[in-house]
């Protein structure tokens, strides 16, 4: 039917229609045209800071010598002490670069920095339509799929000990969250270094007291 329809037009128009149809089909398959990504490509660094915070007065910090691990039911033991040390070292290096000095006594420090880590398992699912790209897929007809994936999150929280000392929860001065997909094959140490560096890089106001 379609060949009969277009055959009444000149050859070059027919050729254009055929090429156009081929290009159109390619476009159909690429409404969201992106290449696959690796686990490290999922790394996201998010930071927030208290709009009222004056970082020019913050020059010393105290930090616990361990990373607090949080499970679904509360605190859990770390199963990656080497990575914990990597996180703490990366924070120390960046704090030093921004002019902060280490204060052993938290009460004497201008700010307290705490590192936390969590691992989450996500369950997701989807629906792959039948005959996609062949003809219109009838709603409801699809192959159901389910998959799970694990993500790791590192949180760095900076608080003012003077504000947090009266028993009331204090607004954090600064929070950095680093999240990414865990696949067991990529190099987590380098991803942690990159993420912590990026958290400080996009928070240059932390160096106001330098």
């Amino acid at each position: 039917m379609i060949s009969t329809y277009i055959s009444k037009y000149p050859k070059f128009v027919q050729l254009f229609i055929i090429l156009f149809a081929a290009g159109f089909s390619l476009q159909l398959a690429s409404c969201y045209p992106n290449d696959p990504i690796s686990a490290s490509d999922t790394d996201v660094v998010t930071t927030f800071h208290n709009a009222a915070a004056d970082f020019s007065t913050k020059m010393s910090y105290a930090m616990p010598d361990s990373v607090f691990h949080i499970g679904e039911d509360g605190p859990v033991d770390s199963n990656s002490p080497a990575l914990d040390q990597q996180i703490l070292s990366a924070i120390e290096a960046n704090m030093a670069q921004y002019g902060y000095t280490v204060e052993a006594n938290p009460d004497q420090a201008d700010v307290v920095v705490v590192a936390m880590a969590a691992r989450s398992t996500w369950v997701s699912g989807g629906c792959i339509p039948w005959y996609w790209g062949y003809y219109y897929s009838y709603p409801g007809y699809c192959y159901p799929v389910a998959y799970t994936y694990e993500t790791g999150t590192v949180l760095i929280i900076m608080v003012d000990p003077d504000l947090a000392g009266n028993g009331n929860p204090a607004d954090a001065l600064w929070i950095a969250g680093m999240n990414g997909l865990l696949d067991g094959s990529s190099n987590p140490a380098s991803r942690i270094d990159r993420a912590v560096d990026q958290a400080f890089k996009q928070s240059s106001y932390l160096a106001d007291g330098k």
Binding site: T42, D43, T46, T47, H49
Partner: peptide, 20 residues
């Protein structure tokens, strides 16, 4: 790239983004 977040407490987010 880094996107500035215009939220109550200012923020920023960095990561690989697919925008369509």
């Amino acid at each position: 790239k880094t996107v500035e977040l215009q939220t109550k407490n200012p923020g920023a987010i960095t990561g690989l983004q697919d925008r369509t």
